[in-house]
Simulated assay, not measured.
Amino acid sequence: MRGTTVSSPGLLLLLLAPRQADSEPQLPRASSSRQLADCRAGSASGSQQLFPAPGERFRRHPVGTAVLILLLLVLVLALGAAVAVLAGKGGAAAWAVLGCPRDWIGYNGVCYYFSRDFSTWEQGQERCSELGASLAIAKDEEAMDLLSRLCGNFGYWLGLRRRGERLHWGDGSSYSSRVPVLDNSECVYLADERFKSGNCSSERPYVCSKAQAPL
């Protein structure tokens, strides 16, 4: 059988066109791939510059980061003290404060401890002494207001006692507040946001106080 002869020039070009296309190098396509890769690399580099990793940010600004952490810590402690004061009406809820032992409440440089056990006034003084403290002394109105809020309805012994006709704190200083002390008994306790006096041999919970340790 003889081969077929193609005499039409147009048909000949159509048959040869795919082979010529396959034989040509694909330069434009390779160039486009390189451009796309360069673009992605550039975008990644720009993102790293705009949004550095946390570790890289700390290495660049160590002092600023440390100051920010310290400020946040102080803010948390301040909020904790505020919550303890505002929410303390329900009882002597303990709040951890730097410079005060565990289960003590710190305020204005003084640590306070609200007992869970009951004792006479003298026994409360002895137990506070074992903790390196004394029955609570609250000479200013801010301290009195704090203790009133935290004591709630319970009657807590304070470090205030009648000596003769006058009331004296445990450190020997005279009671000079305008806040009245109800009744004329010897030992003073705090209940219902009022100072009251009662028999020293009665058993009540007690409040201890001592200076806050330096930080």
Rank of each mutant, 00 (worst) to 15 (best):
G164R: 00
A143N: 04
R116T: 13
K139E: 07
L190K: 08
F154E: 11
S119V: 05
W157H: 05
S185V: 01
Y156Q: 01
R127S: 03
E141P: 02
S129E: 10
G106H: 12
S115C: 00
R149L: 05
S174N: 05
S115K: 00
Y107L: 07
E142P: 01
Y113G: 02
G170P: 00
A92W: 12
R102A: 14
F114N: 00
G170F: 03
R162A: 04
V188G: 01
L131C: 00
R116V: 06
G155Q: 12
S174T: 06
L190V: 12
E130P: 02
A92H: 07
L167M: 13
C151M: 05
R127C: 02
F114I: 00
Y107D: 11
L182V: 09
S176R: 13
D183I: 03
W169P: 01
R102E: 14
Y107T: 05
Y113A: 04
S115L: 01
S115G: 10
G159H: 08
L150E: 04
F154T: 15
D117K: 03
E141L: 03
G152I: 08
A96T: 08
D140T: 06
R161H: 10
C111M: 07
Q125N: 15
Y107M: 09
W95S: 07
R162W: 10
P101L: 02
S174F: 13
L98T: 11
L160E: 04
L182M: 12
L182E: 10
E122C: 02
S176A: 15
R162C: 06
C111N: 09
W169T: 00
G170W: 04
L158K: 05
I137T: 12
L190D: 13
Y112A: 01
Y156T: 03
R102L: 13
W95K: 02
N184F: 11
P180R: 14
A191L: 10
C151V: 14
G132H: 06
R116G: 15
R161F: 07
W121G: 01
E165D: 15
R166H: 11
L98E: 05
S134I: 01
P101R: 11
A138R: 02
Y189E: 05
Y189A: 10
I105F: 15
V181E: 01
L147M: 09
W121D: 00
E141V: 06
E186F: 04
E186N: 08
I137V: 14
W157G: 08
L182S: 12
N108G: 11
E193S: 15
M144S: 06
S174Y: 08
G124F: 03
S185A: 10
A96S: 15
D117A: 11
W157D: 06
A191P: 02
R116M: 07
A143W: 02
D117M: 04
V97K: 00
Y113L: 09
W95V: 13
V110R: 09
S119F: 01
G159T: 05
F154A: 15
Q125E: 14
E142H: 08
L147H: 00
V179N: 11
N184T: 09
R162Q: 11
E141R: 06
R166N: 13
S119G: 12
E165L: 09
C100K: 06
G159Q: 07
